Computed example of a mutant assay.
Amino acid sequence: MKPHSGKVDVFVRIRPTAKFSRGLIECLPDGQTVNIYNRKDSRKLQDSKKGQLSFWSFRLEGVLKDVSQEEVYARVCQRVLQGALEGYNGTVLCFGQTGAGKTYTMTGSTESYQYRGIIPRALQEVFREVDKRTEHSLSVLLSYLEIYNETLVDLLSPQQGSTHRSRGMAVVEEAGRGMFVRGLSLHPVRSEEEALNLMFQGEMSRIIGSHALNRNSSRSHCIFTMHIESRSRSLSDATYITSKLNLVDLAGSERLGKTGSGRQMLTEATYINKSLSFLEQVIVALADCHRDHVPYRQSKLTHVLKDSLGGNCNTVLVANIYGEAAQIEETLSTLRFASRMKCVRTDPTINEHTDPAVSSHNITYPVSLF
């Protein structure tokens, strides 16, 4: 499957709520446009301007309102996963305010099969493809990285007790390999069941907290990665392809006055908001064709995601928002970020390699003329 022409696809998903504000949030029938109306009520405004409505319109690839987890996966991730099987790197990011549904979109609920999120659905599909593509040998390895307070954490660490320590892990870049985390463990999996067990193991190790907007708030950024290699079963074919599929659940931005965070959560929120601010700075720089320098190294998050944001990758963003009037400022902030993301261009190319061990056996020598 060929990638899109280097553009980032952006979707907005609206969290279902009984308090949905139809007067301030309008989803147009085209399924791609969401309009936001915000009533100004600042003391700095003159009395004649108090209460006036401001209007913003955002056109995206899709507005996901009252849709199933199955439809979200089909529209957001399926094309990216199929591209990964053809040798293109892929990334799906969930971005938005705390409690807006990012983790539900990415991992879903374990209470019901139909409420599975993008990660378990992608694992199911990749192993179905492994069974179908009998002419190729496909191998799948998994990693699960957490970035907590600017510390790299291996959620699948094989060493007991080291889950919440970095153990010398570092973000590095190599020619032909791109960005990767040195010291992050890779785990080969041969079935959907094995893969799901590893995913659940990582989920149990994630750092979460509870505050006024979310009982199970992610206090860190998490990147679940599928590393895929596909080789022809033909002994004479020396070429093979590789790819990475990053499924990213970003920690939610917070306004501390609304979450009522304590001291520890205040520290966490400060790190979260700072890293998301650096992410936005990177997006602004990438969208500006006159900027030569992009500040990827400002944070661990932007450094790890360098390829996903402006390199060799098919990238999709899901902007998760509330549909409530009380969260309208945060909704506007999220949609502005999503709008900027649409201006970013990537350069997806097939990761094709040649196995020297195979090619050396296929050398043909010229026939002697004598």
Rank of each mutant, 00 (worst) to 15 (best):
P3Y: 03
S5F: 11
S5I: 11
D9P: 00
V10C: 04
F11V: 06
I14L: 12
P16R: 05
T17V: 11
S21E: 12
G23E: 10
T33D: 03
T33W: 03
I36N: 05
Y37G: 07
K40F: 06
R43V: 15
K44S: 12
L45C: 08
L45H: 06
D47F: 00
Q52H: 12
F55C: 12
W56G: 14
F58M: 06
L60M: 12
L60D: 00
G62P: 01
V63D: 01
D66T: 04
E70P: 01
E71V: 13
Y73N: 00
Y73F: 13
Y73E: 01
R75N: 04
C77S: 15
C77M: 14
V80L: 09
L81S: 00
G83K: 06
V92P: 02
C94V: 10
F95N: 07
T98S: 07
A100R: 01
S109Q: 05
S112R: 15
Y113D: 11
Q114H: 15
R116N: 12
I118P: 03
I119A: 03
R121M: 02
V126Y: 07
V130T: 13
K132V: 11
K132P: 01
K132H: 09
T134P: 04
H136T: 09
L141S: 14
L142V: 14
L142Q: 12
S143N: 01
L152P: 12
L152Y: 06
Q160G: 06
Q160P: 07
S162C: 10
R167E: 14
G168D: 11
M169P: 10
V172N: 04
G176L: 08
M179S: 09
M179Y: 01
F180W: 13
V181I: 14
L186C: 10
E194K: 05
E194V: 09
A195G: 09
N197V: 12
M204W: 11
R206Y: 00
I208Y: 06
L213R: 09
N216Y: 07
S217F: 01
S218L: 01
H221G: 11
F224K: 10
F224E: 07
F224L: 12
T225C: 07
R231F: 02
S232V: 04
L235V: 09
L235N: 08
S236Q: 15
S236R: 15
T242P: 00
S243H: 08
V248E: 05
A251F: 02
G252C: 05
E254G: 03
R255Y: 10
G257T: 14
T259L: 02
Q264L: 15
Q264C: 13
L266I: 08
N273I: 10
E280L: 02
E280F: 00
Q281A: 15
Q281I: 03
V284Q: 04
A285E: 07
L286T: 09
R291V: 13
V294Y: 00
S299Q: 03
L301S: 12
K306A: 13
D307E: 15
G311D: 08
V316F: 11
V316Q: 04
A319K: 02
A325R: 15
A325N: 14
Q327P: 09
S333G: 10
F337W: 02
R345N: 09
N351G: 04
T354F: 10
D355M: 01
S360L: 14
N362R: 07
Y365I: 13
V367L: 14
V367M: 13
V367T: 11
V367Y: 10
S368I: 06
